[in-house]
Amino acid sequence: MADHCNGSSHSSESFANIPPIKFTKLFINGNFVDSVSGKTFEAIDPRTGEAITLVSKGDKEDVDLAVKAARFAFDNGPWPRLSGSERGRILMKLADLIEENIEEIASLDAINGGKLFSLCKLIDIPAASMALRYYAGAADKIHGTVLKLSKGLQGYTLREPIGVVGAIIPWNFPTIMFFMKVAPALAAGCTIVVKPAEQTPLSALYYAHLAKLAGVPDGVLNVVNGYGETAGAAISSHMDIDKVSFTGSTEVGRKIMVAAATSNLKPVSLELGGKSPLLIFDDADVDEAANIAFNGMFFNKGEICVASSRVYVQEGIYDKIVDKLVEKAKALVVGDPFDPQVNQGPQTDKKQFEKILSYIEHGKREGATLLTGGKHIGQKGYYIQPTIFADVKNYGRGD
């Protein structure tokens, strides 16, 4: 059952009939296949910390096969040569299939990433479908510009798909980030190789299955499960990938830039994490400011690249804001993400779980005042009490 954040126990009782996991292999050239090495890795349920299935582990050789399929599909296949309206029609059908299978997909992101089942159905999956429909509608509206150069001369720009795209997506929003990268690439006529985060590969494989059902040709969309230092590195440095898109840490983003620069100078798009501050001044509406601050801290378990986990409050309303935030944190219900009464599920994996606990201990050592939370919940799974510190020292540049 669910526990309030200051609870000391947690039950892993499931509140949903979780469907069987259907897709665990690599998706290359329109087929689900084992990795070349035959190796697998465990997909972990963060509610318990236990394995729920084995997933094929892709490596450089598998990335090579996926890129070869994507390159052939781009150079010789129908996808870049279809009219924009025809590509858009297929992507619209994919959006329909996503909406028809929303329950099963939401279950995968809940059991594999600890995300709230209800919010996956309410926010993540509808947002992915909307993004797909947006780019499907843009597919036949990719226009160049006519330029008047001088007397009797005109020029024009022609927008063409860049080629094979490599996409490396994070674990905190596996559905939304999949389509924020895949949808525009496919709409433009590109082919793509996706490496989902090793923590959350299950929904990406399901989307590959739906893409084939929608009519996306073989080789256009490929999914290679694996680790960043192997499969991700192979994508970043691959000579036959024309562009890389990455969302993740600043540290890894730097490595991707180096790999892209030292291979074929492919362009990169990077969305990197940070430590975002929120500033609240004395003239703010206290209730509204507290709501914004609280949602900025704890939405999606705090696992978001723009989480406002540093809150600066002007002296005049500092105590009022702190009191309201503590009250909200104590009322937050932590537990099984399938339980409709729960507000916060488990952290995505053991690494993030341990990192957060280490930050809490670091805050204590530095002398910050722990107002609420600060402990893990239960004997199994990656549950942490919502935690708020006050009297925090600000270590800025030069401090």
Rank of each mutant, 00 (worst) to 15 (best):
322 V>D: 00
166 G>N: 06
277 P>S: 01
345 G>P: 05
376 H>E: 08
80 P>G: 01
222 N>D: 02
179 F>H: 14
274 G>N: 00
203 S>N: 03
32 F>N: 00
277 P>T: 01
381 G>H: 12
213 L>N: 10
24 T>K: 10
251 E>K: 10
344 Q>F: 12
395 Y>G: 00
38 G>Q: 08
383 Y>G: 04
241 I>C: 07
119 L>N: 12
77 G>V: 07
396 G>N: 05
93 K>Y: 06
321 I>A: 06
184 P>A: 13
145 T>G: 00
351 K>A: 14
43 A>Q: 01
127 A>H: 09
152 G>V: 02
364 K>V: 07
216 V>A: 03
283 D>A: 12
109 D>E: 15
171 W>Q: 05
252 V>R: 05
288 E>T: 04
240 D>R: 14
29 N>A: 08
168 I>S: 04
19 P>S: 07
20 P>R: 10
44 I>S: 07
347 Q>W: 11
10 H>G: 00
322 V>H: 06
132 L>P: 01
179 F>Y: 15
212 K>A: 04
232 G>V: 08
246 F>P: 03
341 Q>F: 12
101 N>I: 04
266 K>A: 10
218 D>A: 12
324 K>M: 11
158 L>K: 14
239 M>N: 09
147 L>W: 12
219 G>P: 04
200 T>V: 02
348 T>M: 11
72 F>H: 10
357 L>Q: 13
136 A>T: 03
133 R>F: 12
113 G>N: 11
271 E>M: 10
44 I>H: 09
